[in-house]
């Protein structure tokens, strides 16, 4: 992903710090052919892929930790989290750094797309379907944008893992 695009994303995110207007904004990124959105309020920043130090004894999707300006942040590969096939990282691969309940976590995604506003009345509950890869567990709803329907993810469910609970 180009630097310019990352800057654009940051501008979009920083556009309005106000929580109320942020509430309806989502960052969309791609994994495979599908595009997913997570609430802007969770997102700290988007960074290019960097060297990840592998942590032993972790679920496969926990790729390891990175150093983000002195902070050690664990990273989840969303592709693997959804049980999809692993794919080599390339220059479009990004880390979306989020903060959930005071804990910083990075999500590795194929590429970042855009920030879009979807108001609450345009969001419907996810239909009770099952995908082959199993990401339906993490879906919080389906957002309608014009004719398109976008998948919105429940970040808190994404980071929950029975195996990591101590």
């Amino acid at each position: 992903m180009s630097d310019a695009l990352i800057h654009d994303m940051h501008d979009l995110i920083a556009e309005d710090e106000n929580e109320d207007t942020q509430a309806d904004k989502y960052l969309f990124f791609k994994i495979g052919k599908e595009s997913y959105g997570i609430g802007i309020k969770y997102i700290i920043e988007i960074i290019e892929l960097q060297k990840i130090a592998e942590v032993p004894d972790m679920p496969r999707y926990v790729k390891g930790v990175i150093n983000l300006r002195g902070k050690v942040i664990p990273n989840i590969d969303l592709r693997l989290r959804f049980g999809m096939e692993e794919r080599e990282y390339d220059d479009r691969t990004c880390i979306v750094v989020t903060e959930i309940d005071g804990v910083s976590i990075g999500f590795i995604v194929d590429t970042v797309e855009e920030v879009m506003e979807i108001t609450q009345d345009n969001i419907e509950e996810a239909p009770p379907f099952q995908t082959r890869s199993g990401e339906e567990k993490y879906i919080s709803g389906m957002g309608k944008v014009g004719e398109q329907v976008k998948i919105l993810l429940d970040v808190e469910k994404l980071v929950q893992d029975e195996r990591l609970k101590k």
Binding site: A53, V55, V65, I66, N67, V72, P74, V103, I105, K166
Partner: peptide, 25 residues
């Protein structure tokens, strides 16, 4: 300390950031 998210990892007591920015366990 390693991230709260990771919990305790057997065999590791934490990590440190080296001069070049890389993480060492």
């Amino acid at each position: 300390s390693l991230s709260e998210y990771l919990g305790e990892v057997t065999g590791l007591s934490g990590c440190t950031i080296m001069g070049d920015g890389s993480v060492s366990f």
